[in-house]
Write a protein that binds this DNA or RNA. Structure first.
Lengths: 136, 136
DNA sequence: ATTAATTACTACCTTTAAGTAGTAATATAA
DNA sequence: TTATATTACTACTTAAAGGTAGTAATTAAT
């Protein structure tokens, strides 16, 4: 019931970038502002780049910018890239729940779980902007 | 959005014990039936014992039995013992959400999260019995 | 060209969860 | 009282996540 550190970092980075007007962000700046270890952050940035969320330019005045509109980057996509999505995993893993039968808790568990996952799929970085309207 | 292996094992073990009439279960038997590594299982059993869920007897004809009625062992308690509870942890960890302000996703996320946690608190091993009535 | 500022890459180190091995302690039965 | 079947304890190994270090590649400014 907790995202892994890498996912949290990625969300915080992208959310912060979504909430500023600056046309470019450097790893150094992001690292300091968000208090994320510099070297670890650069690796995350590279992955976010490979995933197509951001573009990077090296060298002086280099940095990171979004590669597409905020609405097109879903929270779910980010978690997927960070390898932090576990759909259809039942409460007890390989246990009673997996082989056709379902444990009694299965329903109670999978419903809110699906709710959360739907929310991840429906919300984008646009929704993480401070100005964003409240979204159910 | 996934329990850790140890928690899943613990739940499967206790659920299985709840669903049998045998007055005692051996580590060997549980390990084979549930396909959980023997040595790892015995460590889990020791922890479940220390937590007061089960009693153990060594030696010939030894094994594990419940230390109290099934209703009194809540799923939440089990997860707590397994160190797998993360209440009040926001989506982005130490990020925007922590310092007074909440990110826009906070509500959407924390509601179903709380739902799940409430469910864990309200349901016990009794509810994991195959015969248990469906429970919302 | 040279320097400085940046990202990219590769390899390593640290921590924690997961899993294994060996032995000690305990209880029963023969 | 000896053998056997069990759990308990301690220490190690493995795998994966998290984090660090050094250097190469790239870009811009001077």
């Amino acid at each position: 019931m907790k995202l892994k550190a890498t996912s949290e970092y990625a969300l915080r980075i992208l959310a912060h970038m979504s909430n500023t007007n600056e046309d470019s962000h450097t790893a150094k700046g992001l690292s300091q502002t968000l208090n994320i270890p510099y070297k670890y952050l650069t690796r995350i940035m590279t992955n976010l780049g490979k995933a197509g969320f951001i573009n990077s330019t090296r060298g002086k005045n280099g940095g990171f910018i979004f590669a597409k509109p905020l609405e097109e980057i879903k929270i779910y996509d980010i978690l997927e890239v960070m390898n932090d999505v576990n759909e259809d995993v039942c409460l007890m893993g390989e246990g009673l729940c997996s082989q056709g039968e379902h444990c009694v808790l299965h329903e109670s568990w999978s419903k809110p779980k699906q709710l959360i996952e739907e929310m991840f799929k429906n919300s984008s970085l646009k929704d993480l902007q401070k100005s964003a309207p409240f979204k159910a």
